[in-house]
Design a protein around this nucleic acid. Structure first.
Lengths: 196, 196
DNA sequence: GTCTATAGTCCGATAGAC
DNA sequence: GTCTATCGGACTATAGAC
């Protein structure tokens, strides 16, 4: 009768994902063991492997299925606007990320670890960087005359990556407030008046 | 007679440092084994431990002794100026880092890995972030009226951290050129005319 | 679906010979 | 100063019982 007891597949799967996000964030991919995940969710190594196939299967699971979801929705919200503002997009991205520190932590750690061309997530991050800029370049942004949109995008995205490291380094910081300070630098008066 | 043959202490020590910088960069602290370092420099694990004491000894060696050296010289060059320019400081930092990709790679990887409060280099990075900003705030920068120096510093330093990740992610990129594009965003006309 | 058991390898660190 | 040998433990993954 009861097909959704406290240890059904969905719960297990979610628990494994959550534990993996935390561990990849704190210890990286190389520093994470299946044993750690298994202990955290109350299974054995073999039990975890039943769900994810292999250690690399964990990567695909948390990157493609978990991290990308929310970010893609922000981009979708921008495409439907006629003359969207870059500052508006980034405020939305920051607001989303401020509510998921564990996923941002995992992203930051894997992003640095995957600089290594041999890292199993290297291609993912190379691809993601390229795709983020090119898809943003296809939007008809409302910007002041003379502004190089690609330079602004590259600079702002770099700033966000660096800021998130600072945010996570010390507990109790407010990412939205930190980004508000960055906006003053990124979109100063008088140049950006009316464009943010 | 010959006290500096091909396997004296200085050579060994330098070789160990170089191999450690490379390995910490590619694999992180957790992902690096003493065996890897030992093999690369032609020693056994025990031989390496003779020089560095422990795995954490490697961290102190490469961070305090190797990475910080060049950066501190840039700051020293700014302090002696009467009305230094922030843009000038950062151009110097970027020029230095562009010539030592392996050390920047190590710094970026450890910086993310050490977000974890239990990481042996966590305190180093927390301390370094604080010290970088406070020491820069003690300099009498030449900036346009109305500019918040601390916001500019936090934003620019974040941007540099993020940009270095992008630089290292794909081979063949020119960090100086990438930073020049960032400068257009960080110090735009007309606000910063005459201040860069 | 989850377990135990195990294979085979690697880990950091120490002791002690030379 | 560098080695061999060794400790106690961790690792991924597989095989096979239930």
């Amino acid at each position: 009768m009861n097909t959704s007891d406290s240890s059904n597949d969905n719960d297990r799967r979610s628990l494994i994902i959550d534990a993996t996000v935390r561990s990849f964030g704190r210890l990286g991919y190389y520093g994470t063991s299946l044993q750690r995940i298994a202990t955290e969710v109350g299974l054995t190594k073999a039990g975890v492997l039943h769900y994810v196939g292999s250690k690399e299967g964990l990567l695909d699971l948390v990157l493609a299925e978990e991290y990308d979801r929310d970010t893609l929705q922000v981009m979708a919200a921008m495409v439907v606007q006629e003359r969207p503002l870059i500052a508006d997009m980034w405020r939305r991205v920051v607001a989303v990320n401020a509510k998921r520190p564990a996923l941002v932590h995992m992203f930051s750690t894997l992003s640095a670890e995957a600089l290594d061309p041999d890292h199993p997530a290297h291609a993912y991050f190379v691809d993601r960087e390229r795709q983020t800029v090119t898809s943003a370049m296809n939007i008809n942004w409302s910007v002041p005359d003379g502004v190089d949109v690609e330079h602004v995008l590259q600079a702002g995205l770099s700033m966000m990556d660096g800021l998130q490291l600072r945010w996570l380094r010390s507990p109790g910081r407010d990412l939205n407030a930190m980004w508000a300070d960055c906006e003053d630098v990124l979109f100063p008066s008088p140049l950006w008046d009316g464009y943010r």
